[in-house]
Amino acid sequence: MIPGSFSYHSPATVEEAVGLLAELGDDARPLAGGHSLLPMMKLRLAPLEHLVDLRKIDALKGIKDEGGTLVIGAMTTQAELLASDVIAGQCPIIQETAALIADPQVRYVGTLGGNVANGDPANDMPGLMQCLDASYQLTGKGGSREVKARDFYEGAFFTALQEGEILTAVKVPVPPAGHGYAYEKLKRKIGDYATAAAAVVLTLAGGSCKSASIALTNVGETPLYAAEASAALVGSSLDKAAVDQAVSLAGAITAPASAGRGPTHYRTKMAGVMLRRAIQRAHERAAG
């Protein structure tokens, strides 16, 4: 099982890469870690004439703390996220999530940029980035723009990325010190995509919930930022009534497909179970 024939390009700069993509048009695809694209190419489901490999572009690598915002290069691998002291100290939910993606070999190669840019609703990082209110830097021949993760996803494998643009960086606002967090993922086995998953970040003040952010993975055509469910927690003591209300509001925005991971009603129910567990763990971890 090998891909069909294509021409291979390995530009050294972002400018060169977006120039190539503009010139080659929709016969070309950018390659990050390749652990989503290469399997599709092998199945001949991703026909392309030109592959533009981004691996030699140093500007797409690395994790920087720019005073309240983490700027993570698109080609940063899941393993690099897991090994980063900056991520561990500032935003540990990224590591909790990365550790649940695929398996060690895939995490060495799979990138954050590829995970969020591909538009696969089964991927874990898009929901997390919506929870964290991250922004994506998109660069094309005409320059760069930023799109919020909450606005980026339009449908399964459809995103705000325009032809010729690549996602170059993910910008994550650092959650406040003392925040509670959890990513809860139900999967059938190690390495599987989520049957349903929930990301929660919250802060407490004087025992009540000061802020909350909830997003769900793989229970719709896109990752789902649950704005109403998040709001239902704010001001509460995270008591059963508030959590029940949040679970109900979050469940109402889900529309999972009936597929190998279970029928629609089951996956919606499991999204609620994951959310309940995530709120509880985030609550336990939060200070104040």
Binding site: Y8, S10, G34, H35, L38, P39, D53, R55, A79, P104, Q105, V106, Y108, V109
Partner: peptide
């Protein structure tokens, strides 16, 4: 699985040109 630049990789999902 083989070792490539200090990482374990599944060589069925790496192009030879990526190993340059």
């Amino acid at each position: 699985t083989v070792d490539m630049n200090g990482k374990s990789v599944k060589s069925c999902t790496v192009l030879a040109v990526q190993a340059d």
